[in-house]
Write a protein that binds this DNA or RNA. Structure first.
Lengths: 232, 232
DNA sequence: CGAGGATTTGACCCTCGTCAAGACTTGTGG
DNA sequence: CCACAAGTCTTGACGAGGGTCAAATCCTCG
């Protein structure tokens, strides 16, 4: 049941490229875990020292100031890797946005396994480099874009990422219609805005006919070209 | 002359941990290059496809919007690794802030070498993970901090990083006095502010006696505790 | 000494945050 | 099945932080 052979992300996560024998060994040190929406997997500053692969669902990575301001610094989709192996413990919380299933490892076990399996370390490196790229382009958004630009960029990114990780019915190309894994407050925390500004920008786009909002968390993109133009 | 044996970052860069034979091989595919202040090493979107180690000096990593807004998404100090190995070419420019020396490799050569030297890939992975941590905490700053908080955080980070990379006379602990490798405009581009706001916040801190500004790019921290409190 | 660039300072104003109220969802229990 | 409550989202009024534009001042270097 909880075996890697049947895992849906077996060929997309960092486990891809491991042979059967290695998979068995990895299987031995990991275990599946379910996290329900809103439940934390890792607390900021905690030293539970675990890492994980996302099998299913969406999780947020956040940091906060002492006075409670929050910034979402990353979003993990199926096949993404979570946690901080090797040395440092990074101060970020991980909380499930939707019901999720993950494959967790103690950091020590994982570190040891990774160091003796270069192919896995390589996969992890590629993934980390890609995440760094994405994070840097998000810095551009946070530092230099206006609220309308932020919202447009966000919707386009959602449309792409939700499609590519198979979270929506449509299988090819960006999703035209999708369900956000975020509340309005969480959208605000991703974009460095307030909930009110997010709401206002959403309704503005709706009134202009660029998007439709059939339900609280549902978005349909009616005019992708406009969004691209607005994204700046 | 340009050999790795005499390299000042030999034991701090990703080359640390390679034995002499490996170093010779790495030496064979790399070459030293000088970049003077203001000169680019990599253009956004270019496919020159090179990666590099910083030997000496400071460089900035930037992305820009079409209409010319710029965001500095990373700063590379001696022993830091620059560029995007494996697959993707990331769209960021690299420009020297000070006169700098780097050790460059064609990406293909480097990729091939790295894949056959797990120890080097591991070092690169650790470095990339650390950079991702730093980048994420910078997202918090860009998305959620006020201008005074940004400036205070920036000065503290400068004081730490310039000390640890040996860019200032003081060798132990954070630097009390240092020379910024940034112009005011570049500080603005790091913090997601305008040059005017940066200037005003600097003079405000000076008037309050928290810092002194003996010269254009020089900063002396008079009251570190205040800065920490202001950093939020 | 003068020119050109960088920085500072000032005046103004716009975007977005704050505060507050109202509307819409969702869930619960009678 | 409905009333009520609690949470989420939207809308409005207002103001402040920080951006914009413009001018003055300060370095730096030929």
């Amino acid at each position: 049941m909880s075996s890697c052979e049947t895992c849906v992300v077996r060929n997309r996560a960092i486990c891809a490229g491991l042979d059967n024998q290695e998979i068995v060994a990895l299987n031995a040190i990991g275990r599946r875990r379910s996290v329900s929406a809103g439940e934390p997997l890792i607390w900021e500053d905690d030293d539970s020292l675990l890492v994980a692969n996302v099998i299913d669902g969406v999780l947020k990575l956040t940091t906060s100031t002492e006075d409670g301001r929050e910034q979402i610094v990353g979003v993990a989709y199926p096949s993404d890797f979570i946690g901080r192996p090797f040395g440092q413990t990074s101060k970020a919380s991980v909380v499930a946005l939707t019901d999720a299933r993950v494959c967790v490892f103690s950091r020590n076990d994982f570190d040891r396994f990774a160091r003796s399996h270069p192919e896995l370390e390589h996969k992890l490196l590629e993934r980390t480099l890609a995440e760094l790229d994405r994070t840097r382009s998000w810095m551009m958004l946070l530092g230099r874009k206006t609220a309308p630009e932020k919202i447009a960029t966000f919707l386009l990114e959602m449309s792409d990422r939700l499609a590519e990780t198979g979270c929506t019915p449509i299988t090819r190309g960006p999703a035209k219609r999708f369900t956000l894994p975020f509340s309005r407050q969480q959208v605000a925390d991703v974009l460095g805005l307030t909930i009110e500004t997010v709401s206002r920008q959403f309704t503005k786009l709706k009134n202009e006919g660029v998007i439709d909002l059939p339900a609280r968390r549902d978005v349909e993109i009616l005019n992708r070209a406009s969004l691209v133009a607005l994204a700046g």
